[in-house]
């Protein structure tokens, strides 16, 4: 596994009709972030923290746009109140692309295990967010699947990526 292609992921995000991406870059998403900035169809916003980003995305959606959120698992931990208040509570179908910091190291048996690793999926389950894993181009279909789940349930849903993105 070496992650999904940033170019293919951006093309998919465009095909799914997303209009805006709210993204706080991290090491694993840097290629994706760069590819998004080159997209003529997508506006990219980088707020200062993830809770701020979720509220910004909620405002975009309420105003009629279709936002997509990229954040690391650590940012999801920071953004819990915003996710509750601006996504789950008011039934706003936000799609979160969550970077799983610590996953590659844990899978390779490297020590110490990043403390962000073990809490990621339990946290997502605690929020009752439907989610799928994205580990390579073979999994790219989960983005459309989770987008449909978010829209169908009017609730946030998540795609968790474990290996970052290749250019």
């Amino acid at each position: 596994m070496n992650g999904a292609s940033a170019a293919r992921t951006v093309a998919l995000i465009e095909d799914l009709g997303f209009t805006d991406v709210v993204s706080i870059p991290d090491g694993e998403s840097r290629h994706l972030h760069r590819a998004l900035l080159e997209s003529p169809e997508i506006e990219v916003y980088s707020p200062t923290r993830e809770g701020e980003g979720i509220a910004l995305a909620a405002g975009l959606w309420v105003g009629g746009r279709k936002p997509f959120i990229i954040l690391q698992n650590t940012g999801l931990m920071e953004a819990g109140d915003a996710l509750r208040g601006c996504g789950i509570g008011p039934s706003i179908p936000l799609l979160l692309l969550v970077g799983w910091r610590g996953y590659p190291g844990a899978m390779s048996g490297a020590l110490p295990v990043d403390s962000a690793f073990p809490y990621t999926e339990p946290l997502i389950r605690a929020w009752e967010l439907p989610h799928r894993r994205l580990m390579s181009d073979d999994d790219l279909g989960v983005i459309g699947e989770m987008a449909a789940v978010a829209e169908g349930t009017s609730k946030p849903a998540a795609v968790v990526y474990g290996y970052g993105f290749t250019p």
Binding site: G51, A58, G63
Partner: peptide
Amino acid sequence: LAFGMGHASDFGLGLALAR
């Protein structure tokens, strides 16, 4: 109120960008 502590203007920013 209760949409997210401290985030009213973030939400407003998103709404203003959208409209």
